[in-house]
């Protein structure tokens, strides 16, 4: 039997449905990721106004029609539109990236308290301007950790040798989700991971983005490694990363 549900949620994405409706994907602290039809959302601005724009934090009333049935949005009231994000093109790109990244690692109605808090905190940061490249890497590591895919970086997956010990080039084994020391990595096709990049990830985990600095070459390697880790779990590249790449090129 249909029931009315009240919740507060952030708009993750939206797509058109038919002539005048929209399907909105939300992230709620209590209900996780869910989708709802917003009837006549494109035709009438009166009913939902600007509450269903990307990144908006809204108070919702939805009709839950039961398992495997699309919910229907009855009412939406804006709590925070994160309007300042919309005044900076790079901040828009970053907000799109974090939204897509968090949504991609969540199943419908998975437990999502921590993911919601991470998204909400990041959107508040983005109200002040774009994120630093170090903050973006920390965000990626955080999302991977929340999804249970935190890369194993402390020691060699095969022999247990402590990372940062010894000379030579270590490698990242994408199929096993962690690093391999020089001797265990030999003979396999893995992605090289220099000691500097390991130090960067360790510093990020221990000190956060504030106390971490890194040279551009190391950042480039860290970015491409994390992108590959994320893509290998998702099985496809994120569209918003492609958007950021295009923005960086102009």
């Amino acid at each position: 039997m249909p029931r009315f549900v009240r919740t507060e949620a952030i708009v993750l994405s939206r797509r058109d449905l038919g002539e005048s409706d929209r399907i909105i994907q939300f992230l709620s602290r209590e209900r996780g990721k869910f989708s709802a039809v917003a009837p006549a959302a494109r035709k009438s601005r009166r009913r939902f106004g600007g509450c269903l724009e990307l990144f908006c934090y809204t108070r919702l009333r939805v009709v839950d029609k039961g398992p495997n049935r699309l919910q229907r949005l009855e009412e939406a009231v804006l709590i925070d539109g994160h309007d300042k994000i919309k005044t900076d093109l790079v901040a828009i790109g970053h907000a799109g990236y974090v939204s897509e990244l968090i949504a991609a690692f969540l199943g419908e109605e998975d437990e999502a308290e921590s993911s919601f808090d991470l998204l909400s905190a990041t959107l508040h940061c983005l109200d002040q301007g774009p994120l630093s490249t170090v903050s973006l890497r920390l965000l990626e590591l955080s999302v991977l950790s929340l999804a249970g895919f935190a890369p194993h970086l402390g020691s060699c997956l095969a022999c247990g040798t402590e990372s940062l010990a010894g000379e030579g080039m270590w490698a990242y084994d994408h199929s096993r989700g962690g690093i391999l020391c020089t001797s265990c990595a030999s003979g396999h096709e893995n992605q090289n991971i220099p000691v500097e990049v390991q130090c960067f990830f360790r510093s990020l985990r221990q000190q956060g983005s504030e106390g971490t600095s890194v040279d551009p070459q190391c950042m480039h390697l860290a970015r491409s490694l994390l992108a590959k880790i994320i893509d290998s779990y998702l099985g496809k590249p994120l569209k918003s990363r492609e958007f950021l790449r295009k923005l960086a090129g102009v």
Partner: peptide, 11 residues
């Protein structure tokens, strides 16, 4: 229009 979630860039 540019769209971060669709990867639609200036090109």
């Amino acid at each position: 229009a540019l769209s971060p979630l669709e990867g639609k860039g200036p090109d």
